[in-house]
Nucleic acid binder design. Structure first.
Lengths: 234, 234
DNA sequence: ACGATTTTGTTAACGCGTTCACAAACTCCT
DNA sequence: AGGAGTTTGTGAACGCGTTAACAAAATCGT
């Protein structure tokens, strides 16, 4: 809680920056997407109820989330779509573009490299790294596949702060260490392994098998409860 | 807690099934992975501390999580790796295999279809669906790409209960409705959109852009705090 | 046999996130 | 101008999940 004041655009004091709950942060991108969708359909204003509907949350939660950022709505009216969208984008840090390096150009890395959804949201895939010498120089989505040795150089040259690990599990920790050593401080990990990183480095993981397993658990429970019902009906 | 003594294999009463917290469910697959890793390294027994380390959580949480399943440890000793692994697998529902259909064979769908990590965890990609007629019949990972029209038939024939949506956002809700109509009751959604589903259908979402945006937020904050420190040093 | 040591299972405290409910603030209509 | 109607922002209650702490239960050594 630095008591410093900040003046981003039109003199807002006490900077509501600090202390936004993690759960709220995780929802801001969803609100952003919902707002973009509304803007694309020509909607210029929306109530918390409408926005919440589009984002798949309840309106109280949405209002509370937004209240952490500041008071961007108007009572009795709602939120101006484009204004709120800008404020959320600014809060997340999307007023600048972020350069990303993808390490591991297998099936998944390839798909990520080709995915167009990143660019439209302010993320630019700036480099592709692999360890297989037979693939050095190969061009994917306009970028050359580069050896892992050159990670330091590439990260520095392209000002990369976000790394994506799409290698098999057995390489992931090594690649992670290299990324951290090169100065990357945010990592998105697709390898099914728990990464050890030093203080100050953020890791988010995406594990497809885990998601399927969670679904399987619920699926099994649904199946069991049907069995129970039938048994009970006897 | 229940003063019952232990009967590891036959005759389980009062079924400890109900009421496992969602947060715990989401960690069971991680424990499972950690146990598999230990087993592969020849470890036969592990304490909650060791297991927790391998899973990246603290030991109190691990013990509490496991206590929801039953009492599978031995005080003063720890957990038997293979026994606990089986119990967790059973709880999640991995004693059977699950058939999965992937809808949308673009970059991502292709990568998922080829990904070998599913099979090893009890998930079998049984069908590939796309809407592009020019791709019907194309073989990917030993499976033919099938038209969306045939979803009902395929789901029924292959006993598919889990669907993966890897289409662009604009098709996703339509595909989702079709999946539900065909009898699929668990969906893993990669499309950047909030899906509407009826009661009883579970949806989990994976949104790569959202993950990157969350990282960007923290990255921005780290950068800002550096700036603040420097400013404060003046 | 029994005390020392280890480690689980569980209870209680704590903290975070969600939801409710309502006053404050805005618009619109007469 | 002022009352009726909306909708936000938020304080307070609630519930869930995490963590700490410890008694119960096992092993080991003597």
């Amino acid at each position: 809680m630095t008591s410093r004041s900040r003046k981003p655009v039109g003199s807002r004091e006490v900077r509501p920056d600090r202390g936004i709950p993690e759960a709220t942060i995780a929802r801001l991108p969803i609100y952003l997407r919902a707002l973009t969708g509304l803007a694309d359909r020509g909607v210029t204003s929306a109530s918390s109820e409408e926005l919440a509907g589009a984002a798949g949350v309840n309106s109280a939660k949405l209002r509370k989330d937004l209240s952490y950022l500041g008071t961007y709505g108007t009572r009795g009216v709602g939120y101006e779509v484009s204004y709120l969208r800008y404020q959320i984008a600014r809060e997340i840090g999307l007023t600048q573009d972020w350069n990303v390096v993808i390490v591991g150009i297998g099936n998944l890395g390839l798909a990520l490299a080709k995915y167009s959804g990143f660019a439209s949201r302010g993320f630019c895939v700036a480099a592709l790294i692999d360890t297989d010498p037979s693939r050095y120089g190969e061009k994917v989505a306009g970028l050359e596949i580069t050896p892992l040795d050159q990670l330091d150089r590439v990260v520095a040259e392209c000002s990369i702060s976000i790394g994506v690990i799409a290698t098999p599990a057995n390489n992931a920790q090594n690649v992670c260490d290299r990324l951290v050593a090169a100065g990357v401080s945010s990592i998105l990990n697709f390898a099914p392994i728990v990464l050890n990183v030093p203080e100050g480095v953020d890791v988010r993981k995406v594990d497809l098998s885990i998601e399927l397993q969670i679904l399987a658990y619920h699926e099994q429970r649904k199946a069991n409860s049907v069995v129970d019902l039938e048994a009970g009906a006897l």
